[in-house]
Simulated assay, not measured.
Amino acid sequence: MTITPIESRLSVSGQPNEAEIADLSTKGFALLINNRPEGEEPDQLGSAAEAAAAEAAGLAYLHIPVTGPGITHEDVARFREAVESAPGPVLAHCRSGSRSLTLWALSEVLAGRLRRDDLLAYGRERGFDLSGAVRWLDTHGDTPDGT
């Protein structure tokens, strides 16, 4: 699992295994957010196993399962609130880290902290393609109320 720092309070990664989750608190993380739907791949760890591993490591755990086209304004708001209210740094993951970064980048655009025109560069600078976030904004609007 490669951890990519995004902001001081957020990093993203691909799917961690149980040993990697156990090590997260020693790296300073306080919250693990899982953005993968259950059963996305047959060999993924799964929410219950992740929650148990996070608890054993002293981490808070939150499951916000999303797929790119199915992301809602509520998903974006829940993700932002979780990151902002966490007692320390957050690691959010999906299969590659892209959906987790997409949730954060969308929340930044909706909050007026990131310009829509800067989304692709923002993703590229962090090693991710955020063209899906641009398409999401085309469909859902770039304000919190969807206009």
Rank of each mutant, 00 (worst) to 15 (best):
L137F: 09
T139D: 10
R126T: 12
T139V: 14
E7G: 03
L110K: 10
N17G: 15
E81A: 15
L119N: 11
E38M: 11
E81I: 05
N35E: 02
D117M: 00
S13T: 02
I64W: 01
A60C: 11
L110T: 00
P65D: 08
T2V: 11
D117C: 12
H140F: 10
H140W: 04
N34F: 12
L137S: 06
I33F: 13
V90A: 06
A133T: 08
M1H: 10
G39T: 12
S100K: 01
A19F: 04
L91Y: 01
F128A: 01
T139A: 13
L10R: 00
G97I: 05
E38Y: 10
A56V: 14
G46H: 06
I64A: 12
E55H: 14
S96M: 07
P37G: 03
S25P: 09
A56I: 15
A105L: 04
L114P: 00
R116G: 07
P69R: 12
E84M: 09
A105H: 06
M1W: 02
A111R: 10
E41A: 15
G68P: 09
A54H: 02
E108V: 07
G58C: 05
A121G: 13
D145W: 14
T102N: 04
G70F: 05
L45F: 03
R9L: 13
A121D: 14
F29P: 11
A121S: 14
W104G: 01
E18S: 12
D75P: 04
A57K: 11
A22K: 04
C94A: 02
D138F: 04
D118T: 12
S100C: 05
T4E: 08
A82F: 03
G46P: 02
G14Y: 02
P5C: 11
G88M: 08
N35L: 07
L114M: 12
R99P: 00
S47Q: 13
L119Q: 07
M1F: 07
G127N: 00
I21K: 01
S13D: 04
L137H: 08
L137E: 01
A86E: 02
L24S: 04
R126F: 05
G88F: 09
G28L: 03
R95H: 11
R99M: 01
H63C: 00
R36L: 15
L62R: 14
S100G: 13
D75G: 02
I21S: 02
G146P: 09
P37K: 06
V66H: 01
A30V: 09
W136K: 07
S107D: 03
I71Y: 01
G58K: 05
V66L: 05
L32E: 08
A52D: 10
A105D: 03
S13F: 06
P5E: 13
A51W: 08
R9S: 14
V83N: 03
W136G: 01
A57C: 02
G39M: 09
T147I: 12
M1I: 07
G46Q: 05
